[in-house]
């Protein structure tokens, strides 16, 4: 599984969304992606990619697309 597939799988499993909906997905646009869902997602991505997000990046992680950009800061190319 490549990094994009791992990234997508985390979103789909934790937020229960379809792959087709990922590109437009934003924080608080669906009920599952509230502040608690956000912590689940961040923790899962940290496990998957063996990284630790800074607090500012956890807060800035506002969408599926933005997340890709932030993860790149930690040396992970999606």
């Amino acid at each position: 599984m490549n990094n994009l597939e791992k990234y997508n799988k985390a979103f789909m499993e934790i937020l229960n969304v379809a792959e087709l909906d990922l590109e437009s997905l934003e924080y608080q646009k669906i009920s599952a992606w509230d502040s608690v869902g956000h912590m689940q997602l961040i923790a899962a991505l940290e496990d998957i990619f063996d990284i630790m997000f800074d607090t500012d990046d956890i807060i800035d992680f506002s969408s599926y697309v933005k997340g890709k950009e932030l993860i790149a800061k930690y040396g992970v190319t999606i």
């Binding site: 912590m39 961040i42 607090t55 807060i59």
Partner: peptide
């Protein structure tokens, strides 16, 4: 700190 959630609390509280 990840498993006790301390790592996430500053962001979590701000977002809450």
């Amino acid at each position: 700190p990840r498993l006790n959630m301390a790592h996430y609390y500053p962001a979590f509280i701000k977002m809450q």
